[in-house]
Design a protein around this nucleic acid. Structure first.
Lengths: 323, 323
DNA sequence: TTGAAAGCGTTACCAG
DNA sequence: CTGGTAACGCTTTCAA
């Protein structure tokens, strides 16, 4: 692979001149420029970004840590992020933590040695903060990492309220909330919004079941529904869980939505494929990613940010499962 | 951020010694080592991987280009790849092409300037080869890029055969194949296996409809099914398409699987959530990713590879849609 | 067992 | 307008 010296030699100029040409910076004679361009083409030269990074002390790489790629929710986020990163002329280093603190630490280490310029972090681990030894801008995504780290989240509290109101309107009297783990702030906020709204209706019974965000929650769901035949309304922590509920209820011979209403969360594509289709709380997922990335670049460029913690509105999408 | 010089100064040794310590290489006195370690800890020093990369002329980064993150199929692949890359002490630079040649070229350019050490490429573009100006190992994934570039694919031809045989066994007499675009070799191989098997049954009518792998193929599917009420068997190019078929047929009041059998492709999670659940051809997706990565590292380390083009077995997964 | 110094490929400053 | 050169942070060779 040719380097800048080879180009300089071939074009009979100094490396400084070549550098000026490839960066379009400083004065350089039109004719000299031509010569250099020709040499570049002839040698098939591409500048070595690593050497540049070393000099400028910045890799132009943005690190992203998310729990899981298999979740459509995170995919949508990433597509929003990637677009913005590319527009700004940066690259993406994408890592999945699999919800493991060890893996997060490992990637943080890699990021640290690789001198990334910014980090978008979507972490469950409450004490991840103490492992962050990066002196670069960070934006928390979907979850608030700490008070000091800017974040972009959805209005989970409102999501809980919307779900509760819909079930109340639908005349549900025995409601179960299959909520996410207590370690996740979004799950807590949703539960708070949900429960506080229902508290104003003392005639409504509310159960709470805490589930992990793993694929095999079926047994727990099934067990609960079998022992609680009086349930007539479900608020699920995710659309996947909602879909699992539908499956369980079908097995139990119960009619959705006639006997039981269900509301999911996220508005991923599965909502449209189940029978009945799933009513859900939609988050502006792609926007969340975009805004997180935009915020990160503001931090990188030392521009002011209006708001440290941005919370985006959510929306109830009505489909068949609550009709 | 402290650098190696700072550490050397604090420990009262030379940078060479510090280097020896952090790399565990060459002779260094046990006591000196202690001193250096202490200095490292005190300064919170982490080696600058960019400087290392520059020296060793290798970034320890593997580039991955895939069409789309939103597709569960590619996600599973990536999780296989990521694991192997991490084990080998490399990092991942993941890029999505959105099926756009321009974007592929853009990323190829980025990879080139960033001196990645290897590339896993999942590209639709037939003429992508001519844009690859990297002198590093490449492995094609899911699709064969060129005869010379090692690849890992699934046995798509066999997938077509399995699907055909299942529909034949189920006594289908009017079959439609919703196949993928002709520009994709996997789609062609599946179609070949499928059609060649059915040719031996002249009493069976076969239609072929070519679809893009976009989310909004519903109109085309609906139009075809409405105008062809005699259809009693469907082979879909993906599980998503199969799920769309189920939705359309429900709208048309037709019973699956009683009146029409459906077979999908990929075995992604949606198969379990539709009603009826979807029979499908399963590819060893995670393995494909792992093997592609393993192959890449063999190439990087100049180890021999047994086979240039590896084709992995597929399997029919029987669910309700063909019962 | 340790240190000095060259070199990895680039940029930017300072002279000319 | 152009060239020489220090600097970016690290590794490795060669001498001591």
């Amino acid at each position: 692979m040719a380097n800048i010296k080879d180009v300089a030699k071939l074009a009979n100029v100094s490396v400084a001149t070549v550098s000026r040409v490839i960066n379009n910076k400083g004065y350089v004679n039109e004719h000299t420029k031509e010569l250099v361009m020709q040499a570049i083409k002839e040698l098939n030269y591409v500048p070595n970004e690593i050497a540049r990074s070393l000099y400028r002390k910045s890799s132009k790489i943005i690190g992203i840590i998310i729990p899981d790629l298999k979740n459509e929710f995170f995919n949508d986020m990433i597509s929003g992020i990637e677009e913005v990163i590319l527009q700004h002329g940066y690259k993406t280093m994408l890592c999945t933590s699999r919800e493991s603190l060890d893996r997060e630490k490992e990637y943080l280490q890699i990021f640290s040695t690789n001198k990334i310029d910014g980090l978008i972090l979507c972490s469950n681990s409450p004490d991840i903060v103490s492992y962050i030894n990066l002196d670069i801008p960070i934006v928390g995504l979907d979850r608030i990492i700490s008070k000091d780290i800017p974040s972009v989240t959805a209005d989970n509290y409102m999501g809980g309220i919307l779900a509760a109101n819909r079930l109340i309107e639908a005349n549900c009297r025995n409601i179960v909330q299959f909520r996410g783990p207590q370690t996740l702030s979004p799950a807590n906020e949703r539960a708070n919004g949900f429960l506080q709204t229902l508290q104003r209706h003392p005639d409504i019974q509310v159960h709470t079941v805490e589930l992990e965000f793993t694929p095999d929650t079926n047994a727990e769901i099934y067990n609960f529904l079998v022992t609680h035949p009086e349930i007539d309304g479900i608020f699920a922590a995710s659309d996947i869980i909602a879909a699992n509920c539908i499956r369980c209820l079908k097995k139990l011979g119960r009619q959705v939505p006639q006997e039981i209403k269900i509301i999911g969360y996220d508005n991923i594509s599965i909502c449209e494929f189940t029978d009945p289709t799933i009513s859900t709380i939609a988050q502006p997922i792609v926007s969340m990613g975009e805004i997180a990335a935009e915020t990160l670049f503001k931090l990188i460029n030392n521009e002011p940010i209006e708001q440290r913690h941005i919370s985006l509105p959510v929306e109830l999408i009505e489909r068949e499962s609550t009709k």
